[in-house]
Design a binder for these strands. Sequence first.
DNA 1: TGAAAATATTTTAAGCTTAAAATATTTTCG
DNA 2: CGAAAATATTTTAAGCTTAAAATATTTTCA
Lengths: 192, 192
Amino acid sequence: MSARASSPPGNDSADYPPASAAAAMAGRDVERLRMWLRILDISNLVQRDIRAHLRAGFNVTLPRFDLMAALDRAGPEGMTMGQLSRRLRVSGGNVTAVVDRLEREGAVTRRSPPEDRRTHFIALTEEGRRQFLAMAEAHLGWIDGLFAGLSPSEVGTLTGLLDKARRSAAERAAEEAPKDGAKDGRKGGRDG
Amino acid sequence: MSARASSPPGNDSADYPPASAAAAMAGRDVERLRMWLRILDISNLVQRDIRAHLRAGFNVTLPRFDLMAALDRAGPEGMTMGQLSRRLRVSGGNVTAVVDRLEREGAVTRRSPPEDRRTHFIALTEEGRRQFLAMAEAHLGWIDGLFAGLSPSEVGTLTGLLDKARRSAAERAAEEAPKDGAKDGRKGGRDG
DNA sequence: TGAAAATATTTTAAGCTTAAAATATTTTCG
DNA sequence: CGAAAATATTTTAAGCTTAAAATATTTTCA
């Protein structure tokens, strides 16, 4: 859950910028902020709904579902902890914790190849994959249902503009945080 | 941070539906799912950036910023714990925890009116409000920067479509979870 | 070879989050 | 009045999350 996120929150519509902060905003362009708050609202709303469905229908949390999705995509060999960390964009410690629980539940296995005992390959068990496929199918239905109020053409327009917005934000966030100064985009990380 | 959320994750663009789940998705419409994943991506990306800025520039977390924003909006009397819980759409226990920390830091005060000692009004201290205004000003600038790649007209179109998407999701999420069966939309809650 | 550096993961400390149980207080109503 | 219900908040148990420190193992290279 968590409706959190840098919001003059509780927004069901207009009233931005927030009351007292209004003074500080005087004369500033607020349209991009307004747009962002819509994105945030939808994101929170949909995530809340999906989490509730996952819990009620499958007794699974979103982090576990996401991790299983990555493993499903990876195929039978699975992925290493480091690969999962990068793919999911979460910390290594986080992957350790979530994998621990999935392993305890029998949804994934950990195995270390003899040639490098530092690393661990995580893979879905048969049961884990079966569970995931059922969840993925249901998930698609939930999303379709939530956005049923948009026509196919509206969905297309929105997706296109969102792509542009994403590129804008990704570029600018990246240049703020140079991280690594790496040459070609592969290095400095942890494994591959 | 957390890039989490019901995603065939790690998406920088296409490759949905995810590999093995593809079988389950056969013949299903995937456009709305694709759109949702764009929203999710942007939301995670921007929140990550904002959190980093808030921490680096103000040594503050997003939940604390959000709570302070609500209080700023509320004016000098502040808000009760229950009002904060509903406004921020988080649990009561959560509000207790975040307020505890803000209080410890001197950003907010708790006071209980004599006529109802169950309740507590939380308000920004002078220092808390000063801090918040500086953060809100910076926040607006970060958002403007991230979405600078969109023209004003694109921002307008996007905001309009997002509004429609939000209404769609909100309506459908609401009818799934009837919660209260209340008659006219005000009741059954906790306070006002 | 063998010490230093690099890599891969786990552990730890702290904070956010929820649902459910526990407390405290006020309101209702027999 | 006084017990039961309602209301407001805090506490608890569990899980997610991160950054930073600690471990374990492999690679580099003098």
